[in-house]
């Protein structure tokens, strides 16, 4: 077991649903309310030093309860390791705490997740659509959004 997983297990045992390593990637499934705390520990712990927030995204599992999974990828340049955190979020009123206070880069990534999946980030300074336009209804990357339902602003509608 890698340092990251051991540390996470020691310090946040109660906040984790699952942790392990699959296909060569370390991952941990974290309770969504503790995500800020855990990420901060990843960043500030001298044994972990995850200084890059590489990516924030989400996956939609309509059959599962809870429905969404917000996925974070971290990378540590000094120690050269990577970890993936996943936070399950309920489908009816999806909301996760924002990581913007820790990493400025989280800003746009979280806006994109809001735009594509409709997951809100509590404490985000400016949660607007980023890729789609105002007036677009729905969140296109959800599995129940049909791939070719267009909402044109000029020209014919389909």
């Amino acid at each position: 077991m890698s340092v990251t997983l051991r540390k996470l297990k020691e310090n946040f045992g109660g906040a984790l649903f699952d942790l392990g390593s699959a296909f060569g990637d370390d991952f941990a499934v974290v309770h969504k309310d503790r995500i800020v705390e855990v990420s901060q520990a990843l960043r500030d712990d001298p044994d972990l030093r995850y200084n890059f927030l590489i990516d924030v995204t989400a996956v939609d599992y309509p059959q599962r309860r809870p429905r969404f999974e917000v996925v974070y990828h971290f990378f540590s340049l000094p120690l050269r390791h990577r970890v993936r955190l996943k936070a399950p979020v309920d489908g009816s009123d999806p909301e996760v705490p924002s990581l913007v206070p820790l990493w400025k880069g989280a800003d746009w990534f979280e806006r994109e997740v809001w735009d594509m999946f409709g997951i809100r980030f509590a404490g985000h300074p400016d949660l607007r659509r980023i890729l789609m336009y105002d007036g677009f209804e729905g969140h296109p990357l959800r599995k129940d959004y049909p791939v070719n339902r267009r909402q044109p602003r000029v020209g014919p509608r389909n």
């Binding site: 789609m132 296109p140 959004y145 049909p146 070719n148 339902r149 267009r150 909402q151 389909n158």
Partner: peptide, 11 residues
């Protein structure tokens, strides 16, 4: 052919 793109500018 998806939600984001215009199907030909002649529309």
């Amino acid at each position: 052919d998806n939600y984001a793109t215009v199907m030909g500018i002649d529309t």
